[in-house]
């Protein structure tokens, strides 16, 4: 049989990017002094072998972006409601099997306080500023402070534990909304003094934290 001279793009790329002579690292630094491999270019071409998969991923990416964009505009404020503060923080959830700190954006408005999750675009916790009592709790770590929200609306009442990285601005915003935070400021405890369970939860929330940004 005769050899074919036909070669796919995938094969050409494999040959030119993974084979052939190169200069060694010492030379790059001492003589050439420049990066020899276009890293971005390699990244752009890396998906060649899985072109189909890449196409699917593109669609997936576009869809998820569109979905995300739709969700972004879903946050509807009440008539006359004004946002006083938006800040990153957590809500302690211990319903169900797993207890953990759920990250989100805490919003203090002229009428309520709520935790907004940009994805999937929903309000996870919400309480009216009327009949709301806020108590300082022991700080969880040097960076993280916790507050307890006690609320009662009609016959319903409950409490929630929330955490913030910047307690000062949060309390200040609450004050502007007419809520005085009760309880003495307690110095943060050292991480190694924390209860095992709390430590685990914080690690979880940090992991979630990263995934959000």
């Amino acid at each position: 049989m005769e050899p074919e001279r036909d070669s796919s793009l995938v094969e050409i790329l494999d040959r030119l990017l993974n084979k052939g002579a190169v200069l060694n690292a010492d030379l790059i630094i001492t003589v050439a002094g420049i990066p020899l491999i276009g890293l971005n270019l390699r990244a752009a071409l890396a998906s060649m072998e899985t072109m189909l998969e890449y196409g699917v991923m593109e669609d997936w990416d576009r869809n998820s972006r569109e979905q995300y964009a739709r969700q972004e505009i879903k946050l509807k404020l009440l008539p006359g409601e004004e946002i006083l503060l938006k800040t990153f923080g957590y809500l302690w959830q211990d319903e169900g099997v797993i207890s953990n700190w759920v990250p989100g954006i805490w919003n203090i408005t002229s009428q309520r306080i709520f935790l907004w999750l940009r994805s999937p675009g929903k309000i996870l916790f919400e309480a009216s500023l009327e009949n709301l009592q806020v108590i300082r709790l022991q700080a969880l770590t040097v960076e993280k402070w916790a507050l307890e929200l006690n609320f009662f609306e009609g016959s319903a009442q409950g409490s929630a534990r929330i955490s913030l990285s910047d307690m000062g601005e949060f309390e200040e915003a609450l004050l502007r909304a007419g809520i005085v935070v009760a309880g003495a400021r307690i110095d943060p405890i050292k991480p190694n003094q924390m209860a095992t369970r709390a430590r685990g939860s914080i690690r979880d929330s940090f992991a979630l934290d990263r995934s959000i940004h």
Partner: peptide, 13 residues
């Protein structure tokens, strides 16, 4: 003296 680099797949090809 700089590497040919791009994020544009068509350009890279």
């Amino acid at each position: 003296p700089q590497a040919y680099d791009t994020l544009d797949k068509a350009q890279a090809e």
